[in-house]
Design a binder for these strands. Structure first.
Lengths: 144, 144
DNA sequence: CTCAATTTAATTGAGTTCAACTAATTATAG
DNA sequence: CTATAATTAGTTGAACTCAATTAAATTGAG
């Protein structure tokens, strides 16, 4: 009958399984990303680069929900691996543009099987996965 | 028609919104946790302590899906703040037990309003929140 | 019993994340 | 034009996360 503290129980949290599931699923990528010698953050950054070819640091950060404190070291690391180059814009010298290199483009070929390999690890059927997808984007979009 | 690389598009990922939403929601706790001078990881650790009063580091890590490399510094920090104590078990000296202090118990009173304050930030109604909860635990439990 | 395997915490190192701050550049109000 | 505000990357410092390793203690096979 003493329900005063029920809201503080771990099992009653929505945030906690979100936080835990995110870490668990990212871990599933590790063995496959290790083969490419990139991390998960580098992987999602490359996903954007494969689609955009060229993009500013700011736009990249907005797509990934990450700020420059995170993006800068990730981009420096990808640049060191030869997958992207960075160049300060000539039209607006405050902004820096990131460019996909040929080597970065070639990496896509080695990554193409990763989504299928990881898909099975989530443990949801197609309908459930779609539901989860929609709910997560609803959370992401109502945040602000 | 060239769908070969569609699976590598950010918008087709399930993992990415999971990862991004988790970080966004954890951020929502920040202003409230700042008032208690604890971090999110320390907060969920205290949630377990408020329920258990005493628990081993291993059991704590299993509940939170975190390993000793994460738990040890979190517990040392909570110990420094006076909310828990740590003592190596006398019956099995490999294991360390964590104990809730009176000060830690008192902190519960200051935290009791946090879940309600944060609940509104998720942007889901009751039914959606329950769906998301179930799907996340399904992911968590099928992992292994 | 004895020694190899297992269990448990802790440590280390690399990478991530974010808040706060800085420096440089650009935009804008007056 | 000029001073102020806003924008953009980058840096710094604190905390988190995890893989890999270490050290100590316990368990179990023979």
């Amino acid at each position: 009958m003493d329900k005063k503290y029920d809201a503080l129980k771990l099992e009653n949290q929505l945030c906690f399984p979100l936080y835990a599931a995110a870490r668990e699923v990212v871990k599933r990528y590790h063995p496959y990303l290790d083969e490419l010698d990139i991390t998960y953050t580098q992987y999602i950054t490359m996903m954007v680069m494969w689609e955009e070819k060229e993009i500013t640091v700011k736009a990249l950060g907005e797509k990934l929900f990450l700020d420059s404190g995170t993006m800068t070291p990730v981009l420096k690391s990808l640049e060191a691996k030869g997958y992207v180059t960075r160049k300060r814009s000539t039209t607006d010298e405050r902004s820096v543009s990131v460019f996909l290199t040929d080597s970065g483009e070639a990496l896509k070929e080695k990554a193409v099987d990763i989504p299928a390999k990881v898909a099975g690890c989530v443990g949801l059927d197609g309908e459930e996965a779609l539901q989860l997808y929609r709910l997560l984007y609803k959370v992401l979009n109502t945040e602000k």
